[in-house]
Design a protein around this nucleic acid. Structure first.
Length: 274
DNA sequence: AGTACGTCCTGATCGC
DNA sequence: TGCGATCAGGACGTAC
């Protein structure tokens, strides 16, 4: 599932494929629920992005943000969130469509970018201001000092795990990397955020950045067959925690427990994380 | 305000 | 063997 490292890798893939500086010829959207307001219907969306040049591609949290430019150099933005199962694939005319194609962006050089997403949670926005796609999104972990990071969490009374998943507190951390970072820091996901010392929160901050950076490095160097970033289950062979109940803890070899915390599955070692 | 939980969606997996 | 029930999860809406 695309969390920050997967989305960062998708961005790098698009740049490596020289998508910036190409022009969108037309778009095909297969599912109107993919389009977010204000361009809430397919035709409005298509009109807003067609015949625009893709000037830059960036990432913000788990969002891909592309700046578009028209002939008069007026800027607008195409924003994409991959949901849980979304992936992007740059295809040549002779390539068959991806299996669960929800959208296709046709470029002037005859290539196309296809959005593959079998659960249809991916969303597209055509906006003047990209912030309208994520008005409450918090800062990236790298844009916080250790003290700022700790301050954002230590007033929270919720358990630390859902606090890490709250994108308004920190952007980019999802279920998998939250469990990884908490294990690496020796903090139980069940612990209330305001009961964790500043020193431990500082270590958690460093470990989150470390975990995310290692994941970006791994995904970027392990592409899938068509060259797009390896997203689905990419974590299987590089994560500390195997997401199978009672699998051995990498540190103490005691069984890893899975619990539901605020509706999400959390895996943790009751011995190493307290 | 902060926190918790249901909802969307569908392929894979589980249990009878 | 087969079929229905359950699960997974990011972000948002709703409720307390």
């Amino acid at each position: 599932m695309p969390e920050l490292p997967e989305v960062e890798s998708i961005k790098r893939y698009l740049i490596a494929q020289n998508i910036p500086d190409s022009t969108i010829h037309r778009v095909e959207i297969g599912w109107s629920d993919s389009i977010a307001a204000p361009a809430a219907d397919i035709e409005t969306f298509a009109n807003r992005v067609s015949r625009k040049r893709i000037a830059t591609i960036k990432r913000r949290g788990k969002y891909i943000v592309s700046t578009l430019s028209d002939q008069q150099d007026t800027q607008s933005h195409l924003v994409l969130h991959m949901g849980m199962t979304g992936s992007l694939h740059v295809r040549n005319p002779s390539d068959p469509p991806v299996k669960y194609r929800r959208a296709a962006i046709y470029l002037d050089d005859n290539r196309r970018i296809e959005l593959n997403d079998y659960r249809r949670w991916a969303k597209l926005w055509a906006l003047d201001d990209p912030k309208d796609a994520y008005p409450k999104l918090g800062p990236e972990p790298w844009d916080l000092t250790p003290d700022e990071f700790a301050n954002r969490l230590r007033t929270r009374r919720s358990r630390i795990k859902p606090a890490l998943l709250d994108q308004s507190i920190i952007a980019g951390v999802g279920n998998i990397y939250a469990d990884e970072s908490l294990h690496q820091t020796g903090i139980s996901p069940l612990r209330r955020a305001n009961r964790i010392s500043t020193q431990r929160l500082t270590r958690l901050h460093a470990n989150i950045m470390d975990t995310l950076n290692h994941a970006i490095q791994f995904i970027s160097t392990h592409p899938s067959q068509d060259g797009s970033p390896y997203v689905v289950d990419a974590y299987d062979d590089r994560m500390r925690i195997t997401r199978i109940p009672n699998s051995p803890c990498p540190t103490c070899h005691q069984p890893i427990k899975n619990t539901k915390i605020a509706g999400r599955t959390a895996y943790h070692c009751p011995t190493c994380q307290h």
